[in-house]
Amino acid sequence: MHIMEGFLPVEWSAFWFALAIPFVVYGAWKVKKEIERDPKSKSLLAVSLGFIFVLSALKLPSVTGSCSHPTGTGVAVVLFGPSITAFLSSIALLYQALLLAHGGITTLGANTFSMGIFGPIFGFLVYKALKKFSLSVAFFSAAAVADLMTYVMTSFQLALAYPATPGIEGVLASAIKFLGIFAITQVPIAVIEAFVALTLLKSIKTYTPEVSTA
């Protein structure tokens, strides 16, 4: 779920930029090291980025009829790990803004933090925790959790910018309302995307075992 251009007041867009930048820079540094180690990985990373973008731009069969699409970050984090995902999704989000008019430039920091950092980190933790028991369950939950945490984070970002009353209680009251209204579209998407991610990752694991997962 993207926060649209101009929806956040200036102090909050600056705040989320400040929070997202360290993760993205660390991811960029890791990518740079990877490229220096093996120059051929440049093409691999570029195509992966393209893959994430196209995957995230893929229209899902939607229940509510709204414009819904997967974030693709659940798959990305299982394949590349959280730091590279942070870097790749910040670029993918910029592309989504400039090529599809989803999201925006002043809200890029907030969107990167929710979709590229916060959601994927939780997805990754769940994946790591469940990997030992069942790979299928781990794939499914990684994508579902990455999606759901992204949506929870976005609702909190909106609630922080527009609290019901000043103070923590007001933020929580707002957050509940934002969570409620966006649940209509986001929860079905998370489940559907988790199914898609499960089949995708399982196919990758079965038919292309040379591709390693994180």
């Binding site: 691999l44 195509v47 196209v54 069969p61 199914f195």
Partner: peptide, 26 residues
């Protein structure tokens, strides 16, 4: 809906395979 989900997963895996082909070509 069920078939759409299945088709979408198959499409995304095909796309994944094709991306790998593209890396070589690139």
């Amino acid at each position: 809906i069920r078939r759409s989900i299945k088709t979408t997963s198959m499409l995304s895996y095909m796309l994944f395979l094709r991306s790998f082909e593209k890396v070589e070509k690139f």
